[in-house]
Amino acid sequence: MSEAHGTFRGYMTGFVLSVILTAIPFWLVMADVLDDTLLTSIVIMAFAAVQIVVHMIYFLHMNTKSEGGWTFLALAFTLTLVVITLAGSIWVMYHLDRNMMPMTPHEALQKP
């Protein structure tokens, strides 16, 4: 991250990879290739995860050694918090929503 300005080869590798990893999800959704919403969602999220790793390595020059490993430790900690925030919010709110009394928006507006 800190010492490296990167190399031309590294940037081009990252760029080509990310173009491929962007093009495929857009194609899958725009051409409706898989004909299955759930499967498409899972596939494009997997592509996004891979692309994020590619960007981290080739553009942000992330590795486990820069600054004596502290950048990586900070990243690992942040990712843990991100996962808790995302998974926790969606999980809790989903169950809250399911266990609430059914109500139409109109009824909700009439509530005191």
Partner: peptide, 8 residues
């Protein structure tokens, strides 16, 4: 990528 070129 163009920012990467600027860094190079």
């Amino acid at each position: 990528i163009t920012y990467g070129f600027a860094m190079l």
